[in-house]
Amino acid sequence: MRTKITQEYIDRDRRSFLDKVFKGTIGGSLMLMIPMHSPLFAEVLNEEKSLKDTIDPMNPNANYCFIVDVSGCIGCGNCCVADRKENDVPEGQYRTWVERYVIDMMNKVYVDAPHGGEKGYSNIPILDTIKEVKEAFFVPKLCNMCDEPSCTQVCPVAATFTTPDGFVLIDKEHCVACGYCVQACPYGVRFINEERKTADKCTWCYHRVRKGKLPACVNACPTGARKFGDLNDKESEVAKIYYSKSRLSVLKKELGNEPQLYYIDLHGEVV
């Protein structure tokens, strides 16, 4: 009987109910009365569960791929903010960043990335130096997850490696922080984490992917310029793009690292 009343109360206004529970208006004893089968409870528990411990088994058959649509990036910096928080990246170091390329009428190339683009962009100081802009665009950068990584090759203690499901990760319990991988990475995505004193870099949010979630930056992107998925899943957005006519290119192709990070219609000036 009592349960029914509570249930009705909850159903009437869940949020204000919860509100009161947690602000202490409704005592803790009432909390105990909430039936375990209440949908509200289930929701909350589900939420907690999906955030914490629903780790999928490793999927070695997947061919994960990251695609950046340069024409979609608006340079808002949300991805960088999300990334810093999600991965506890110290200030001044970057797992991902957004560059701005501006080409003027004389074909001069201006590149900037104040604070890695994290704080967004404004027209200053670009407008002071450039009179007429011919072309301008943003280029998000992150780990290229190379098929032939230079960084894992040079690690003297095998503290960085490619997982069976294709992610290049760092074993932060084993890394000695010699910095050789930082030198070897052609894309400048590696750094020595100032707090942990080990090598660090973007993991394409491996911990999220294994929980069935998108990387934090993909989730944060308002325009869908960042796309992530499994190429072997023909229904995924990345597979559709990858197997369509769109022109994909990778950075520094001539080095032979075979990145799994692709850009759609990348301007040739981008390195």
């Binding site: 203690v157 000695v176 922080a177 010699c178 910095g179």
Partner: peptide, 28 residues
Amino acid sequence: NHLGHPERALNMLFTPNFGGPSMMSGFG
């Protein structure tokens, strides 16, 4: 003095990445 984790320096002997192959792993 340069290593971020000098106490792990012996990893260079325990798990040298000869397979990489890492040039630096030969050091130890």
